[in-house]
Design a protein around this nucleic acid. Sequence first.
DNA 1: AGAAACCTGCCAACGTCATTGTCAAGAGTC
DNA 2: GACTCTTGACAATGACGTTGGCAGGTTTCT
Lengths: 124, 124
Amino acid sequence: MRVSIRRADTPDPERPVYVISVAASIVSVHPRTLRIYEDAGLVCPARTPTNIRLYSETDIRRVLWIRHLTQNLGVNLAGVRILFELEERLGTRILERLYDEGADAARAAQDATAATSEPSASTA
Amino acid sequence: MRVSIRRADTPDPERPVYVISVAASIVSVHPRTLRIYEDAGLVCPARTPTNIRLYSETDIRRVLWIRHLTQNLGVNLAGVRILFELEERLGTRILERLYDEGADAARAAQDATAATSEPSASTA
DNA sequence: AGAAACCTGCCAACGTCATTGTCAAGAGTC
DNA sequence: GACTCTTGACAATGACGTTGGCAGGTTTCT
C-alpha cells in the first residue's frame, strides 16, 4: 500500500529539504557564504520550528544564480540584489537573458568546454 | 541674418561638446575615473579627428547613472555593465525604476513618517 | 613659440568587498 | 553522546573602485 510518509514522489521545488551543509556542498561553497547571502537578503531559506535552515530546490537554483553572476560575470552582491529586485518588479525572466548573454560571451571567448551544467533555464 | 556657426541653438543631447576635464568637473569625478569607465565599456565618448574625447549630454547622463549605481546602490562596474546591456536588450527604462526604487528606499529609510500613498506590493 | 590640456600606459595607495576559515557557547538531531 | 546546527566575532586573502602621480608624446590655444 505504501501510505508512508511521502518522499521523492512529490518533486515540489519549493519544499525545504537541504540543511545548510548539504546545500553548501551542492553549490560548492562554504556554509559561511550561504549565511552571508542570507544576511544580504539574497536567499531566504525556510527554517524548521527549531530554527534550522532548510534550502529548497528553488533556493539552490537561486544560489547558483548568485554564483554565476558573481563568479562568471563579476557582479557583486549589491548588483545581484538589484537584478533580483528588478526581475521581481518586471515579472520577467531577465536572468535567463543574462545567462544567454554570458553564454554568448563565453562561447565567443573560447568556445570550448561543453557540458554546461549551470542553472538551467527552467522556462516554466 | 546670423548664418554664422550654430551654437546653443541646437540643443542636441548627442552632440559631443565636453572635453574630459569639463565632463569630469560636471559629474564631480577624476578624469581618470572617466577613462576607466570608458575602458570598461560603460561610456563611449566621441573623439575629435585628433583623438580627443568629447562627451555629449547623453554621455554625461550615462556617467551620472554609473555614479548613482556605484555610489548610492553599491553596484560595481560589472553590475553596471549588466544593467546597461539589459536595458538595451529589453528596450525598457529599467534604470528609472531602479532610481525610483532607490529613492523609495532612501525615503523609507530616513523619512520615517507614515503617509504612504502607495501600498507597496511586497507581501508576495 | 610656449603654456596648458589632451593622449596612453604604468604604478601605487586607500578603503571596501567576497570568500573562506576558525573559535566560542548554546541548542537541536540521530 | 557525538555530530551538526545556530549566532556573533575576528582574520586572511585576493580583487575592485577611486584617486593620484609620472612618463613621453600630441593637440590646442594664445
